[in-house]
Amino acid sequence: MKEEDVLTAKMIESGELNRWKELLRLRLTECGWRDQVRLLCRDAIKQGNLEEMTVDQLNNEVTPKARQLVPDAVKIELLTKIKTFLQENTLQESQ
């Protein structure tokens, strides 16, 4: 979609995407999600048969669980921010 492309480009250009990343990182640390995921990773490593697990293996195993662990409040906060940005920029586009 053209609009999506444009919007995405705007997200990156303005640095807004970076800010969202940082905010998400902040919130996830605060709520302990990072710690939980770290724990999942370590468990995966310990249980893994291989001496060292690769990033791909870890990713396949941990990320699905990690997705579910994100608290709703954090999701809502980020979603609101994203939507606000998109709406503002879509309006501008149509002007």
Partner: peptide, 20 residues
């Protein structure tokens, strides 16, 4: 096990948020 790291201000630079 879990939790993020934090150290004392005059030893580290950066921001980290920790709950425990």
């Amino acid at each position: 096990d879990c939790s993020s790291l934090f150290t004392l201000p005059h030893y580290r630079r950066g921001v980290e948020r920790n709950t425990q």
